[in-house]
Amino acid sequence: MSNPNTGTPLVELRDISIAFGGIKAVDHVSIDLHPGEVVGLLGHNGAGKSTLIKCLSGAYRKDAGQILINGTEVDINDPRDARAHNIETIYQTLALADNLDAASNLFLGRELVNSFGFVDETRMEAETRKIMGRLNPNFKKFNVPVSALSGGQRQSVAIARAVYFNAKILIMDEPTAALGPHETQMVAELIQELKAQGLGIFLIEHDIHSVMKLCDRAVVMKNGQRVGTVNVKDVTDDDILGMIIMGKKPPQAY
């Protein structure tokens, strides 16, 4: 078995390494992602999934390796660089400023300004109402700090932030970890919709059923290294679990 995709990948991480004080958090890992594809990243806590993906989102600087977008090598040194390449990230911690309202968080770092250069609060709120109406029609708390929102509502603010700015590459770090069944279903539908629009999505996920349902391919990591990559439709839950727990590579993996 091999990568079913042909053509230039949307993103290619080649031979990425990063170490923290002598501990190799990510050790020569290569992965790729094509348009309209969902690639799951799996592994134990500490396997290096989040660290690897943070090199792409600009939160960390890789020690070695290359990042290619549409076949061209790019430099990503901070989150601004990543955003400039239409890479949006939904962090596990959501990365929301709790004391600000939904609109301020959605536009944080990219505020809409009027012709005087002042922040256009009303237009930002109007835009926020628009996108939230699409993502989570029940959302009504536009003028309270996000600290007053439920886990699901906070999640929808974080997702709206990623979706609003026309991401081409979306990174989702356990997007459903804090959600109830209904909201989890909503996120699943959203992923399908974005995928249909041609976005590439990296999905860090612990729940094996979500992976089987949502992902096209799955990359399994262990101790900072890549165990293998599988096409999800060719393998069973147990094959993937075996990779995660024992680092055992099934014959279908590549």
Binding site: S57, Y91, T93, L94, A95, N99, S104, G109
Partner: peptide, 18 residues
Amino acid sequence: RYVFAIGGNPEAAALSGI
């Protein structure tokens, strides 16, 4: 905005490109 954001969550502010 950035002053408030940094005060509310410095990490989130940095990840937002501030």
